[in-house]
Amino acid sequence: MPQETIQLVVTRFHPDHDPVPRFQTYTVPLHEDWVVLDALNYIKDTQDGTLSYRWSCRMGICGSCGMNVNGTPRLTCATFLREYAPGPIRVEPLANFPIIRDLVVDITDFMEKLPRVQPWLVRQDETPLTGGEYRQTPGEMERYHQFSLCINCMLCYAACPVYGLHPEFIGPAALALAHRYNLDSRDQGRAARQAEVYSEEGIWECTFVGQCSVVCPKKVDPAGAIQQEKVSAALDWLKSVVWPWGNR
């Protein structure tokens, strides 16, 4: 007889009542087409209305429903219960972030770091609007396209032990976005980003664990982005030694 239910062991934390987070176990139907987010919605609708978590689109676009599922950061809207049968499934808030309540984390740190790498097109010579758009070839777009698919879901930060141990690290998603703009043929801001991106808190903090790229639901590959920026930074340094008058 097929298994009909599965247990979810869910982190609970109420800032007014709980000194530290605790776990609460719920039993939900094990439907073939149910994802972890469906199970959480079922719990909230029928068993415990106080359970708090974030979600929105249910289709892997909004990046709101990231949680640690059995210790690995996942989008819960794309994580099927059946993958974890017979269970139980441990559902925790994304690691490395302060917990506000239950499965909701505080991502203020990321929101403050993101603008530091200037993730937008920086121009030295601004062309007037009448000059038309800045054009690029499909080949030029392909160079950065992969790195532009980030949905800010924070799974990479939750997977990164460096960020957990050293919260000053700018982190995978922000650095991948900096790389995305550095690779853009329309951008002229690489030098302006250097102070942040090529700093100790930037790419040089990364030890290339690589889990950020493994858990990324959009295959952005932040680990690759950071290592490629390290190569660029090293080449800059080499050029400055071999050809010190090059930038004068």
Binding site: P15, D18, N96, P98, I99, P161, G164, L165, Q211, V214
Partner: peptide
């Protein structure tokens, strides 16, 4: 106390035992 959060702490020595990939 709406702003109180819980900040998990990683063991600086044994953190890598928590995940097979680490």
């Amino acid at each position: 106390n709406a702003t109180r959060t819980y900040r998990p702490v990683m063991s600086p020595t044994w953190w890598w035992l928590r995940h097979p990939a680490w």
